[in-house]
Amino acid sequence: MTVLVSERLTIAVEGDVPVVRRRARELAQAAHFDAFASAAITTAASELSRNALVHGGGGYAVVEHVSDGLREGLRLVFVDEGPGILDIDRALRGGYSTGRSLGLGLSGSRRLVDEFHVETSLGKGTRVEVVKWARFRR
């Protein structure tokens, strides 16, 4: 996978969530995403950066415009050093809310992307990596 653009964005305050969302949207346009794919990855960026802030106590995101030679896509990585996710299977099933949220952030984001990896360690933090590809070869 070739990385065309890579940026690291801090997630420390509420105002950082829209910054990550906006950057994901801009890169989705650069990668020729259609409106549906763009809304999907931008929404996932919003959910996962808010998770990192609210549940992880903040951290950072890496947003990347990538290519595998055939397709262009976005790779987003969210890292926090929070308490970790106690029951990851339940969190991935959805409806598992620890705060004032719907508990759909993690499970919902997984359904919006093509690749989804989560690593979590109690007391150490959580890392979520997602990839979404543009629907058509350009």
């Binding site: 409106a35 929404t43 359904r111």
Partner: peptide, 14 residues
């Protein structure tokens, strides 16, 4: 509601 917003919300299960 825009079509892409409706699609995204339903995909997420909301």
């Amino acid at each position: 509601m825009r079509p892409e917003v409706a699609a995204t919300l339903v995909q997420m299960g909301y």
